[in-house]
Design a protein around this nucleic acid. Structure first.
Lengths: 298, 298
DNA sequence: TGATTTACATCATATATGGTGATATATTTT
DNA sequence: AAAATATATCACCATATATGATGTAAATCA
């Protein structure tokens, strides 16, 4: 026979009050109910846990030993209920978020640090993937952030919130000759070594297209690196000019500076909310939308 | 609404199998039963823990977070069941034993060490009290050991097992003049300073009575100490001759020696088994009886 | 693309666990 | 000795829950 958790609660009440009737009051049950539960419990473990002793009840040695172990179960059940309350109050839980690399690496960290300070028991797991994968992941994830034109196949179960426009800028060392200009035209870049992102990057995609339109031929790609940080590091080492989202420059960066392109290269930044988003995810969404919009307005 | 522990077990099965039907098989229930339990569980915490995902089921972020806490409850319940099994197999538990000081301090420790080595999860709590209190404690304790004539008022619910006779001997420093004798008569002691136990000690009681019978008058008590070890230490320091149970000399004692009294002063040593003794207590009793009897035969 | 299979949700019904009130029994108090 | 207090037991009843049947959604296969 297996031990029934309810019986344990009655046993704990018995020990803490020292009598069956008092335990019954404590549990809002009648005395026979508690007597019955305790009988079943003792049958289950095949040992007497207490005996009548004058006005109340007295634990046996086995009862005492059993009680110690019982408390641990009660403790963990209590912890679980507390956690359930926190879940219910949206103070704890776990959120899976997927974001395109640029966002995950630039705007998002500061936002999540701020969110985490306010709600320390809410875990946010970020998957940094490319734009296409963000859409695909919406079935499993609670929230997505993309920075590119919406594809034709937006999953029907997602609502899309527009956050603002992201600008692509050039990055160069602070002593670069082109820093003399307040904005850069693509044609000017032809004369300098450039550092490109890898094939499949949304940033590169939009740049290549603009290049063909403006210059009339595809760019000659001599140096191509995977990821934003690799591009920035190469620029620092003087290997060329990079082109990244305006938010990609680390705060406190002293060796690099940015110049906007002319004409501007903009991309819409969007937040994807799947229909199955939990209340907790909505809480993060409600936090992120104003946060990101205010950053994008600058 | 409170979380029902059975629902937790089903949730664990769900997570571990990845599908409701499989969880049902694992728990030996039908699929609708599990579905219903999980529904109730989710109502209780007010959150979705999973959603249908093709062939099976997929945890939400909240479900994952909840699962981690759930495991702790499962673990403690499992531990409790293991402990219950040990109780049932008489491999764990707690026994309260009360013994007169002489026994508790001499014969018993070695016996309990041996018992503990064989059954390390059984706790034995020893109360060292005087003989009268041993009888009184039988209502609460699982087992008693006394070393004195049984009082007229043996509690009716106790069965008494005779273990043997304990002998009272004189204790003196190894260079004491009386060591020349192989046995000592009470009359001989009149000429030496004696060290007596405190009022109420069974040992002192029997000695006083014998003294009155033999010598014809009560002894002059000049030095009176509480407890056996205090008596022995005083004898070591040359303050006089002590009278204690034959088992009271520590093993490896080098400064003291004993001489039997003539005629012998014997006391019956008995084991008291209350009618409410648990199977565990009976196990200890079955261990102690041969152990103590063999010691007393020497 | 439609048919079939597989799995989960829902519903009505049956059952059994367990709570209640009454009563018997044991122990303490007056 | 009687009254009071507390636990155990019993018969009855209510509720929770498991079941089997059915509905629905999704995936595999033709």
């Amino acid at each position: 026979m297996r031990i029934h958790p309810d019986h344990l609660a009655s046993f704990v009440a018995l020990v803490q009050t020292g009598s069956v009737s008092a335990a019954a009051k404590k549990r809002f049950l009648t005395q026979p109910a508690i007597s019955n539960q305790l009988k079943r419990l003792q049958e289950a473990i095949g040992m007497d846990l207490y005996r009548r002793q004058g006005r109340g009840v007295q634990l046996t040695g086995i009862g005492e030993a059993f009680y110690i172990h019982t408390l641990k179960v009660q403790q963990s059940m209590h912890d679980l209920n507390s956690f359930a309350d926190e879940l219910h109050d949206l103070q704890a839980g776990r959120i899976y978020l997927s974001a395109s690399q640029t966002i995950a690496g630039s705007l998002l960290p500061a936002a999540l640090v701020s969110f985490h300070q306010r709600y320390p028991k809410i875990e946010v797991f970020v998957d940094s993937v490319n734009s296409q994968q963000v859409f695909e992941s919406m079935e499993h994830h609670d929230l997505g952030l993309v920075e590119s034109p919406l594809p034709s196949s937006v999953p029907e179960c997602c609502t899309v919130k527009h956050l603002g426009e992201d600008k692509i800028v050039t990055v160069m060392p602070i002593n670069h000759p082109l820093t003399a200009y307040s904005s850069i035209e693509l044609a000017q870049l032809e004369n300098y070594p450039l550092i490109w992102r890898e094939q499949g990057s949304g940033t590169r995609d939009i740049l290549e297209r603009a290049w063909r339109t403006t210059i009339g031929k595809p760019p000659r790609i001599q140096l191509c690196l995977g990821g934003v940080s690799a591009v920035l590091e190469s620029v620092r080492q003087g290997l060329g000019i990079g082109m990244v989202s305006q938010f990609c420059l680390p705060t406190g960066e002293s060796m690099l500076t940015t110049r906007p392109l002319h004409p501007q290269l903009l991309r819409p930044m969007s937040l994807l909310q799947p229909s199955h988003a939990s209340p907790l995810a909505k809480k993060l969404i409600d936090f992120l939308i104003p946060y990101l919009r205010s950053r994008l307005k600058q």
